[in-house]
């Protein structure tokens, strides 16, 4: 028994198709492992945090980032699949940005890595475009009514990164110290106020 419909367990299904492709000489798992390892070791929100911190300390970089994000992000060495067409949207006192992919799971891999489960799940994908203010409040981020919420549905080629506001009282911090303050969630837009 493997469930009400007797479906083969997921582990057995993955192993089955993989084994058949390997036996047919079609799938090179070792080569693919190198790519997966690259995702696990080199990509993630620490990259995006470096971009944000640079934009906070360097006004000219910030301008380049907002005008042509893919090139500006490449200056810091980040780019590649799911990051070839980047747009950075900036939070201001009057505007809060929120990123979603209602149709699947589009996410800026080079700067944020692979998306967390909740980002790909129906609750987030369905509600972000319908009731973003309520959704954010439930997630602990209260956006007051005087702040416009701009939702960005990544439905085509562009992948979005939110540029959060620099927290107050961080004037003396170095770029490296600022990057530590930047969270994954603030660059998706489900968090607004970063803390020191």
């Amino acid at each position: 028994m493997t469930g009400p419909d007797h479906v083969a367990p997921i582990e057995a299904r993955v192993a089955a198709i993989e084994a058949i492709l390997v036996e047919k000489g079609l799938l090179d798992t070792a080569k693919l492992d190198e790519i997966v390892q690259h995702f696990e070791e080199d990509l993630g929100p620490r990259n995006g945090a470096k971009v944000v911190a640079r934009a906070w300390v360097d006004p000219e970089y910030r301008q380049r980032l907002l005008a042509a994000a893919t090139a500006a992000i490449a200056e810091l060495g980040f780019g590649g699949p799911e990051g070839d067409h980047m747009v950075v949207v900036e939070n201001t006192p009057a505007v809060h940005n929120l990123v979603v992919c209602t149709l699947c799971s589009c996410y800026p891999w080079p700067t944020l890595g692979l998306p967390p489960k909740w980002y790909k799940a129906p609750a987030y994908r369905s509600r972000a475009v319908r009731e973003p203010r309520l959704l954010l409040a439930e997630m602990g981020t209260v956006i007051t009514d005087d702040v416009e919420i701009r939702v960005w549905d990544s439905s085509a080629e562009v992948r979005y990164l939110v540029l959060p506001q620099r927290p107050a009282g961080t004037e003396g911090l170095s770029e490296e110290a600022l990057a530590v303050l930047v969270t994954r969630d603030s660059m998706i837009g489900v968090e607004r106020q970063l803390t020191t």
Binding site: T2, D5, H6, V7, A8, P9, A12, R13, A15, A16, I17, A19, I20
Partner: peptide, 11 residues
């Protein structure tokens, strides 16, 4: 082929 290898239905 895949169902035989997986030991059950593969939707």
């Amino acid at each position: 082929e895949i169902e035989e290898r997986a030991g059950g239905p593969f939707p």
